[in-house]
Amino acid sequence: MSVKHSLLALLYEKPRHGYELKTGFDELVESMWPLNAGQVYTTLDRLERDNLVESPGHDLKDRKQYTITKQGKDELWNWLEKPVGRSLLKDEFYFKYLCASFVDYKDKQRMIQVQKQTMMKDVLNLTQLRKQMNQSGNKTMKMLVEGALLHLEADIKWLDMIARD
């Protein structure tokens, strides 16, 4: 997750001070990803150093305001345009399965079943989260949850496949 780009996105919407960026981030991700104030300020320092944001000064309560620069907007668009490569095989359970096969682990079926149970629980929990997103009206976060559910569906099918192997 790129804190840098999420702060640029928030500043693209409107100028904000540090604490507003923290609360804006929490709203953006429905408070699901923890971000502490320290991370916000260190990221802001780097963004300012790289001329991606600038400060027009302090507000009436003496809080330093930030705005996005032209360079910052370009950086945001470049990041949005760039496709994301994924490391599909570097999965913890894949690796565990590989090692289990390597040592001829006798409880491999049990290992697969327990993994499946965990993933089924994830399905129940993700659906609960989806309901919350429905209630909060956050359609974008709901779509992320839908995406995670589709991944889980594929993972569970794969577990059934290796269980038959």
């Binding site: 089924m120 399905v123 129940l124 993700l126 659906t127 989806r130 889980l152 569906e153």
Partner: peptide
């Protein structure tokens, strides 16, 4: 699976 997620409990 998508439908089953709505339940409190899934029995396979």
């Amino acid at each position: 699976l998508f439908a089953a997620g709505y339940a409190d409990r899934i029995v396979l």
